[in-house]
């Protein structure tokens, strides 16, 4: 968090500066420029995921798949132990002359539980790392921002970024082809 707090003319704290773009190509190349200018607290808002935007923004690969893998495998293991303990230890049930604890018979449910908890981890983990749900956000107050869910592309540089400076940041966004450059209030 930079120590400097910017305010608008009306005295409201500035959250960020936004610039609008017309096409995926425009916003893609603008993102490269913002990345190269050394900003870190900024984002590109697009109606759909743009192919290669991670590289244009310099976003690190998410660890989410690793987390899903670890949780999924652990839950599958726990699911196996559950069956083994219930069928083999706590309530041994003689069926069809089979041993009480038969790992082969436990495979389907072990597999299903692994899948079930991987799916929960995928969606909950995605939301957790994205800090969602977050029903209030300064950007959503901005009328022009709502067009992002339709056909507009927007770059948003937060005032909290160490490199943020109202004039230099505006110049950068203008130079990158941004239109309707505006400040967003906190």
């Amino acid at each position: 968090m930079s120590s400097k707090v910017y305010t608008t003319e009306s005295g409201e704290v500035v959250y960020a500066m936004v610039a609008e773009f017309e096409t995926p190509a425009d916003v893609y190349h603008a993102a490269e420029k913002v990345r190269d200018a050394g900003y870190s607290r900024w984002d590109v808002h697009t109606p759909f995921p743009i192919h290669g935007m991670e590289d244009a923004m310099g976003v690190k690969r998410t660890i989410l798949p690793m987390v899903i893998g670890v949780v999924g495998l652990s839950c599958a293991g726990l699911g196996f132990l559950m069956q083994w303990w219930m069928s083999g230890v706590d309530y041994p049930l003689m069926t069809q002359g089979k041993p009480f604890a038969t790992w082969q018979a436990f495979v389907p449910i072990t597999f299903e539980l692994g899948i079930l908890f991987s799916a929960f981890t995928a969606i909950i983990g995605m939301l957790f790392f994205n800090r969602l749900p977050q029903w209030y956000h300064p950007l959503l107050k901005k009328d022009r921002f709502l067009r992002v869910s339709d056909d507009r592309f927007m770059i948003c540089i937060e005032a909290g970024d160490a490199n943020f400076d109202p004039d230099r940041t505006r110049a950068l966004l203008e130079g990158a082809g941004g239109k309707h450059i505006d400040l967003v209030e906190e």
């Binding site: 590109v44 808002h45 109606p47 969606i123 790392f129 994205n130």
Partner: peptide, 17 residues
Amino acid sequence: SLGWRFSSRHWHRYEAA
């Protein structure tokens, strides 16, 4: 929609998930 705001950083994790 859980406050989805079409962020590319979000899209990245969304696509991974």
